[in-house]
Every structure is written in C-alpha cells, then in structure tokens.
Amino acid sequence: MTWKIMRWVARDVLRSSWIFFYTAFFLALSIAFFTFFEEPSRILLSLLNLVLMVVPLVSLIFSLTYLFNNRNFILLTLTQPVARRSVFWGYWGGIGGPLALSLLVGMGLPMVFYLAGHVSYAPLGALMVAGGILLSQIFLGIALWLAFAFEDRLKALAVGLLVWMALTFFYDGLILTVIILASAYPVEKIAVGLSFLNPLDLVRLLVLMQMDVAALMGFTAAVFKKFLGSAWGTVTAVLALMVWVVFPTFQAAVRFQRKDF
C-alpha cells in the first residue's frame, strides 16, 4: 500500500509545474555554466553554491506547500482502511523521489556529458549530486515535521524559513563568533567540530576538501582532512548526515502517527 501511495504522490508531484521549473532551472544553469566557463573547478564551485543555497530552500518550500495543499486529500486517505504508516511513508517517498530525480536530471545529466571529458572531476561531481540529494532529503524531513506540527501553513512556512536561515547563515555566524571570541586558543578543532553539526557546512567542506581551494583554508583544512581521513572521522561525517536525514523524518512520522486531525 505504501508503494501504491508513493507512486501516486510521485506522479502528482511530477505533474506539478514547480518541480518542472526546479528541474529546468538546474538544467539551464548547469548547461550555461558548462558552456560558458572553461575550468571544471570553477563550474563545480558555482554549482556547489546552488546546491547549498537553492536546493534546501526549494526542497523545504515545495514540500511544505505540497503537503498543505494536499491536506484535505491526506485526510480523505486516512478515512480509508489504510495504515497511517503507509500514508506517511508514501508521501515521504512520493515527494523525496521526484526531488532527487530533478537533481539527477538537472545537474547529474549535464555533468555526465561534460565530465566525460574531465574524468578526474567525476568523483567530485558525483559527491556534489549526492550531497544535493542528501540536503533535499534533510529539508524534506524538516518540512514533513513542520507540516504535521503546525495547523497554520503560514506559521509552518515562517518557521521553515527560519530554520533554513539558521542553518544557512546564522549557524556560520555562530562559528565565526566562536572563532573570534576564542581566537586566543587553538580554535581549529572546535570550528571543525561545529561544522560537523550543520549538514550544509559538512557538505560544503566535504566537497571543498576534494578541490584545490582546500589549500586556502590552511591549518583548518589540515585538521578537517586529518579527522575525516581517520576511521572515526568518516563514521562521524556519515553519521552526522544520517542523523539529519533520519531524525526530523522520524519526528514527523511519530507526530503523524499520533496526530488528531
């Protein structure tokens, strides 16, 4: 049943003009970057900015609007003899699948064509698409949580935007403040530690470490690389991202399960 709902939701999502524009936007920009810029590292850096700024925002707002627009239909589904669990996971996969798909088509496809000539950059490209998909899943999870935590869609949107801003800007501001305040101490490890807690920072640093620009981060990059290079570091990075994917989604699942609509 979960599968059936998922397919149905996915079909509905894929038909909406939002997801179409989202895909077209990425496709157009990727092709433009690949055509007009020459250096692969520069193109990937530009795409990284898109992944960090646009993907979370669009995933969040799109998921929130879709969930609120289909609120009545969700209610209707719940009156049928269908397990709540199936409905939730159906919506989760039905939205998350197309979001991932549009990144694969919008960014992955041009990359496949372009990076065929720059094979050494292929792992980096793959890492970025993977990072983008992971981020969209994280923000889908947050959207699901908010959609079932608030009745008022405006409130949910407002809180969603606040969360997005916090992760995108405020958290980095916090890191900067810590660095400045604790500048008398060896603060690199703390900064690296803090960056592991924010999925946006983590994805950004994971990508940047594979690029030449890592050299500009000096000692901090060395600390990050050393930690990441150790078994503990890899486990921590994967774990940190997984927690961000899993935790909000499960919170949402629990809320949905208990919610008195």
Partner: peptide, 20 residues
C-alpha cells in the same frame, strides 16, 4: 580581513555567509 586576523575563519570559505 577576518581570515587574515583569524585564520580559522577560512573554514567559512565559499559559504553562504561569505557571500552575505
């Protein structure tokens, strides 16, 4: 200037905050 004064701030390179 931030990076000059606080080298660890380089961890924010290419972050949205830098663009902000």
């Amino acid at each position: 200037q931030l990076v000059e004064q606080y080298p660890a701030a380089a961890i924010l390179l290419h972050s949205p905050l830098e663009y902000l």
